[in-house]
Simulated assay, not measured.
Amino acid sequence: MTNEPVPVAAVPRRVSLYNAANLLTAIRLVLVPVFLVLVVASEMTEPGWRMAACLVFCLASATDFVDGWIARRFHLVTSFGKVADPIADKALTGTALVLLSAYDQLSWWVTALILLREWGITAMRLWVIQYGVIPASRGGKVKTALQIAAIAWYLWPMPASLVAVGPWLMGAAVAVTILTGVDYIVQAVRLRRGAGAGAVTGGE
């Protein structure tokens, strides 16, 4: 038996849990209750508190884009990040939507539809994860950007002449949310059927 050195590529690279990507995800989670308190303090009537809430929401949303880029760029993907990142995203967006509806800024059916799609797609991904991973699509990124823009528009105390833009932004966000949701469902069904056919035929 020879004591040959193990090639570097063959040694699994351990990624520390304490890295920049996970730190940003943790910050986003911490900012959710801060955002909630600011919106409640504003009661969606006090301009100063609304501005503060909007800025915190935008800052927290920005960490979503940055932590994902850092994790991929520097190979810092961890199990914590895979679980905590989507939870932080949905906690932030869900909190914002529920608060906007609670203060009569947004119809409850819009909030219910978006949350049903978000949590439903997450559950579906977990359902098919043993057969493969459904990657985030470009449409999904557009959906996220539109949701953030629409929520921020509702939060910021806009002048009367610009208030009407909010519903149009939210309408676009809802449309893309539905379309991308249908696309993910189609991908999941194809992935599940493909795995089932492979098991029956013994194909690789």
Rank of each mutant, 00 (worst) to 15 (best):
Leu113Tyr: 09
Val30Tyr: 09
Ala195Arg: 04
Val98Pro: 00
Arg138Met: 10
Arg138Ala: 09
Asn19Glu: 14
Val182Ser: 10
Ile114Cys: 00
Val182Gln: 14
Gly198Leu: 14
Phe80Trp: 03
Trp69Asp: 07
Asp104Tyr: 07
Lys141Tyr: 06
Pro135Thr: 11
Val200Met: 14
Leu55Ile: 12
Thr111Glu: 06
Val128Ile: 12
Val133Asn: 09
Met44Pro: 13
Leu59Gly: 02
Thr144Tyr: 02
Pro33Val: 02
Ile87Phe: 11
Val15Ala: 12
Arg72Trp: 07
Leu116Asn: 01
Leu23Gln: 11
Ile134Lys: 04
Arg190Val: 08
Leu162Asp: 07
Ile87Lys: 00
Pro157Gly: 06
Ile185Arg: 00
Val182Pro: 11
Ala9His: 15
Arg117Glu: 07
Gly203Ser: 13
Ile27Val: 15
Pro12Thr: 07
Tyr154Pro: 09
Glu4Gly: 11
Ser79Ile: 04
Gln147Arg: 03
Leu116Ser: 12
Ile87Tyr: 04
Gly166Trp: 05
Gly81Ile: 00
Val32Pro: 08
Trp119Gly: 05
Gly196Lys: 15
Asn3Tyr: 12
Val34Leu: 07
Ala20Asp: 12
Leu126Lys: 09
Arg14Ser: 14
Ser137Cys: 04
Thr201Phe: 10
Leu169Asp: 00
Met51Glu: 05
Ala199Tyr: 12
Thr111Val: 13
Ala112Ile: 15
Asp104Gly: 08
Arg193Phe: 13
Met51Cys: 07
Arg138Ile: 10
Phe57Tyr: 09
Glu4Ser: 14
Val200Trp: 13
Ile114Phe: 03
Ala62Pro: 06
Ala20Thr: 15
Arg72Gln: 05
Leu191Lys: 02
Arg14Asp: 14
Ala160Arg: 09
Trp156Lys: 02
Val56Trp: 07
Val174Trp: 08
Arg138Val: 10
Leu106Glu: 06
Ser161Ala: 14
Ile87Glu: 02
Arg117Leu: 05
Trp156Arg: 03
Phe57Asn: 00
Ala145Cys: 06
Leu191Tyr: 08
Val110Asn: 01
Ile121Lys: 01
Leu146Cys: 10
Val56Phe: 07
Val40Lys: 03
Ile129Tyr: 10
Tyr184Gln: 06
Trp109Ala: 01
Val77Ala: 03
Ala84His: 01
Pro5Ala: 13
Val83Cys: 00
Arg193Ala: 10
Ser61Arg: 04
Val186Cys: 04
Thr93Asp: 01
Arg73Thr: 09
Val174Met: 06
Ala175Gln: 10
Arg117Cys: 09
Glu118Ser: 01
Lys82Ser: 04
Val174Asp: 07
Met44Asn: 10
Trp49Phe: 14
Ala102Trp: 11
Asp64Gln: 07
Glu43Trp: 08
Leu113Cys: 11
Val56Tyr: 04
Pro135Asn: 10
Phe35Met: 04
Phe35Glu: 07
Thr201Gly: 15
Ile70Arg: 02
Tyr184Glu: 12
Val163Thr: 13
Leu155Ala: 06
Arg192Ala: 15
Ser79Trp: 00
Leu162Lys: 06
Arg72Asp: 03
Ala195Thr: 14
Asp89Val: 03
Asn22Leu: 13
Pro167Ala: 01
Pro167Met: 02
